[in-house]
Design a protein around this nucleic acid. Sequence first.
DNA 1: CTTCAGGTACGATGCAAGTCGTACCTGAAG
DNA 2: CTTCAGGTACGACTTGCATCGTACCTGAAG
Lengths: 111, 111
Amino acid sequence: MAGRNLVGPEADALDLGTVFRALADENRRSVMTELAADRSDGERGCNSFDLPISKQTQTHHFRVLREAGLIDEIDYGNRKGIRLRRADVEKRFPGLLALLGAGPSAGTSPH
Amino acid sequence: MAGRNLVGPEADALDLGTVFRALADENRRSVMTELAADRSDGERGCNSFDLPISKQTQTHHFRVLREAGLIDEIDYGNRKGIRLRRADVEKRFPGLLALLGAGPSAGTSPH
DNA sequence: CTTCAGGTACGATGCAAGTCGTACCTGAAG
DNA sequence: CTTCAGGTACGACTTGCATCGTACCTGAAG
């Protein structure tokens, strides 16, 4: 299990309240939605998400996601990698990631 | 469709961020967990939930749940009824209500 | 070495939200 | 009518949190 030098909670320890609070924020949810949509689950750069906020705030948001147990952060010193903890999240809260795709009203009459 | 004199958003208008924010609170989530667990979906009294908070705060929380589109509130003047909008929630966010049952670490080694 | 971009640490700020106190409304029961 | 319990309205208080400014660290490239 390489790539978890910045660790969050174990899979069984994920708290639903913490997770919901993490996903309540627009910016964090957009990150998670992108990650959940990419089925390859590859490691992504921190700034590969187009977030309209400062660096410091991005650091804060990624920390919240990590402490909620939703992502791993891999520290390379002057660069950071992000990876979705899909297996752990799915095991603990099956179906949660699928909900992220239902963000904007999409299930209704695609014309 | 009787019993919606205090109305929330339409089923298609439910917002994921609003819903997550509503479910992030411990007290509101306990209410929703109870409602989701009762498959009869009967109308319940407001004080049938054992919430360790004042009346005013309960009023506030039920309002938040209603405005998120998760419940209906039926006003009887000096009494109020609560009913889960199960069909609407399931249609918009399928599987969300099932997640509420996974609150405390329950899916792990039931011995 | 210096330079530079990516990230973090710390503090400050502004706003949203959970909580309660006081006062008031509503309908049912005496 | 009065009384009483369930609920609401308004306001105040406090905490949490998203955001940013400044300063600093880290590793790679000149």
